[in-house]
Amino acid sequence: MKHRADALFRTVALGTLLLALAALGALVYDIVSGGIGRLNWQFLTSMASRRPEDAGIYHALAGSIWVIVLTGALALPLGVAAAVYLEEYGGRSRVARLIEINIANLAAVPSIIYGLLGLGVFVRVMGMGRSVLAGACTLALLALPVVILSTREALRTVPGSIREGSYALGATKWQTIWYQVLPMALPGILTGLILSLSRAIGETAPLITIGALTYIPFAPDGPWSPFTVLPIQIFNWVSRPQAAFKENAAAGILVLMALLLLMNLIAVFLRDRFQRQGRT
C-alpha cells in the first residue's frame, strides 16, 4: 500500500513535469505551423505595410539589433565596473551590502516600471525623445542587475592564487584586476551579458511605455532615430483583427526566436570554452 502510494505520487509528479514540457511543445507547434508559410525573403527584407501580404520585418529586426547592440555597449562597462567594485573592493562594508540588496530587489521589479522610469528620465528630463538611445538606456538599466550578478559569479571563479601571484610581483590592485582577473573571467562575463541581452531583446512593455512606435515604415539610421523592435511589431500584428496579420505575427515570432537561439548558442559556446580553460 505504502509503495503503491509512492509509485502513484511519482507518476503524478512526473506527469506534471511532462505536462509543462508538452505546453512548450504546443507553443512551438502553434507558432511554427502558424508562421512558417509566411517566412520568406520578401518578409525579411520588407518594411511595415498596411497590407499584410506586403508587410515585412526588416525595420523591426534592424531596430532590435540597433537597440540591443547599444544596450550591450552600455550595460557591459557599467555592469562589470559595479561587479568589480562589489566583488574586489566593497568587501563587507555596509554600503556594499546595501547596494547588493538593492540590486537583488531591482532584478525583481516588473519591466514595465523600468519603462515608466525611462519615460520620465531619458525621454523627458534628459531630452532623448522616443529614440533608439532612450530605448537602449532603459533596457540597459533593466539588464544591469543580471549582468552584475553573472559578472560577480565569473569573478569568483578566478582562483585566489592568481591574484596572490600578481600581488607578489608588485602589481597594484587595479593592475591585478585588469591584467589577470578580468581576462580570466571574460568568457563568463560575456556569457552572462549575452544571456541578459537575450532577455532584453524579447522585452516589449518597457519600450512601448517609453513610446517606441508601433507603426514605423523605415529602419533606424542612428541612436537618435525613432524606432520599433521585433516584439513590438509582433504585438502590433497580434492586435489586428485580420487573420493575415496574425500569420505575420507568427512569422515575426519565428524570426525573434531564431535570433534568441543564435544568442544562446553563442553563450553556450563561450561557457564551454570557459569551462575547458578552467580545467587545464
Binding site: S161, E164, A168, G170
Partner: peptide, 19 residues
C-alpha cells in the same frame, strides 16, 4: 606595499602561472 612586494618576491606552494 606595492613597492615592498617588488623588493620581496614570493613563490607559492602551488604553482600559479597566469593563463
Amino acid at each position: 606595499v606595492v613597492e615592498l612586494r617588488r623588493r620581496v618576491g614570493m613563490v607559492f606552494q602551488k604553482s600559479n602561472p597566469f593563463p
